[in-house]
Amino acid sequence: MSILIIPCLIRTKWDINCLQRLLISVQNQSKQFDKVYVIEDASPFSYSLPFNFIEHIRLSRNGGPARARNIGIDKALEQNAQYLLFTDHDCILDKQWNEQMTLFLSQTDFGAVGGMTYSWGKTLLDYYHDINGTLSGKWLLPDKKELWYMPSLNFGMKAEVAKQFRFDEKFPTAAGEDVDLCLRLRSKYKIGFCVKAKLWHDYGYKNSLSGFKRFVKLFMKYKSSSATLYEGHTVLLWDSSESIYSGNAHVTNI
C-alpha cells in the first residue's frame, strides 16, 4: 500500500496550475496510489480541485511543510500504509514513478529512497539546476552505494522508518527540513537511489533574465536553513558527497 503526501501552500494562480498538473500526472500513474493526501497549509489563496481521488486536508493555520507532511504521515500510518511517498506541488511525476519507488523499497533493504529529478523548464537557469543537481539527491562518497540525503520532492520511506523519524517542525519553510530528516534517519537506515523513478520540477523561470531574481532567492532560502542544519548535524561540515545529475546518476554500485 503506497500513499502519496503533497504539502502545498498556494499563493498564486501559477501554484494552482502546478498542483493541477501534478495531480493529472498522479492520475496517470501506471500503478495507482492507494491514497493521495493534499495537505493544504492554510494558503492565502482559496481554490478547489476537480479530482475525486485525493483527500484534501485543509489546515487552519500555516505551520510550514514539515508540519504538513507530519500530518500526512500520521494519517498514512493510521491507514497502515507500507510506503509513504512525498512530492511537491510544483513537480510532475513520470508515469512509472509510484511503481518504481515502491518496487525499489519492496525489493531492497533501504529504509528510504530518492528518485531522479529533472528541471521542467528549458531556460539556462533550468539547465544549471540540472547539471548542478540542485534538487537531486547526494551520493555518499566514495562508494556511491547510498545517498547522503534526498530532497523531499522526490522521496519515499517505509512505514517503519516514518514511525520513528518525522520532519522537524522547527524548520519554518521548505528548506533544510528534508536534509535534516535524512541525516537523522541515516543513523538507523540507508537511503537508496532509484534512477528509474523520474520526476520533473518546475522552478517557475519564464526566461533566463527574468528568472534570475528567483534563482538568487532560491539559494538564499536554502542558505537560511543551513545554520539550523549545522546546529543539528555538524557532520555537514565534512560533507563528503556529490550531487546527482544525469552524468553520474548511473554510477551506482547499489
Binding site: F171, P172, F219, K223, T228
Partner: peptide, 13 residues
C-alpha cells in the same frame, strides 16, 4: 550566497 549571505536569525536555531 552560501559563503557570505547571513541568514535571518529566526532560522538560526
Amino acid at each position: 550566497i552560501y559563503r557570505w549571505y547571513k541568514s535571518p536569525v529566526r532560522r538560526l536555531y
